[in-house]
């Protein structure tokens, strides 16, 4: 029954490699973008905060699939021709960035205000307070939700297939069209996605334990 899966496994694994590349790009750049925006949202002036809040709220209210389509069609609409992966990656980075920004922003704000008072009272300046007091504590708070966010981002790369970016899910659909063995193939795809995400789930658990231990 699973011969068809085994026979097409190499092809699927090649798709998985593309998925991994896409995931690494989206998670890294999305997290960096989101972290920067999240910090700005916590320390910036009213205009900056307002702009970022709008960005976060808008992206939060849109399904990732729609963001994918928008990202894909935005470039041609602007008269630009870009590689499908770039368009897909861009859309996903913007999407992941919004969720990351919200996590980072709320982690920074959840550092107790008296910590800032204590740092100020020593004569510390704004940047030193942010760097030495706020961010180290905020990171501890943010790491578990950020890892969770990364897991979601990895799985969301499968939406790239709908606009024709070839990766694991797209490869699977091709194989299904050829073999008609939908169930077996997608069972295999499920196992591959799980294998990609499982180590990150374990890392999240491990971090959680470590962080509990130091507080």
């Amino acid at each position: 029954m699973f011969d068809v899966l085994i026979g097409n496994l190499t092809y699927l694994l090649r798709g998985a490699v593309m998925t991994l590349w896409l995931a690494v790009a989206v998670v890294t750049l999305g997290t960096l973008l989101g972290a920067g925006i999240g910090i700005l949202a916590a320390v910036g002036n009213r205009i900056i905060r307002g702009t970022i809040t709008a960005y976060i709220f808008i992206l939060r209210g849109i399904p990732v699939l729609v963001v994918m389509f928008l990202g894909y069609y935005a470039f041609p609409a602007l008269g630009l021709r870009v590689n499908t992966y770039v368009a897909v990656g861009f859309a996903q980075i913007v999407y992941v960035g919004a969720f990351t920004a919200e996590i980072v922003r709320s982690a920074i704000l959840s550092v107790h205000p008296e910590q800032i008072a204590a740092a100020k009272s020593l004569g510390m300046r704004r940047t030193a307070i942010l760097r030495e007091v706020i961010l180290p504590q905020a990171i501890r708070i943010a790491i578990p939700p950020l890892l969770n966010n990364a897991l979601t981002a990895i799985k969301q790369t499968s939406y790239a297939s709908v606009v024709g970016a070839w990766e694991l899910t797209y490869a699977a659909r091709e194989v299904v069209e050829r073999t008609l063995a939908s169930f077996q193939i997608f069972l295999g795809v499920m196992a591959i996605y799980f294998a990609i995400c499982y180590p990150l789930s374990l890392l999240a658990r491990w971090c959680e334990k470590r962080l509990m231990a130091t507080h």
Binding site: H112, A118, T214
Partner: peptide, 19 residues
Amino acid sequence: AKVREKVGIVFQSFNLFPH
């Protein structure tokens, strides 16, 4: 900040940096 360097304060809730 310059003035605060000259004035030490100790709080009811300690406010040590936990990290």
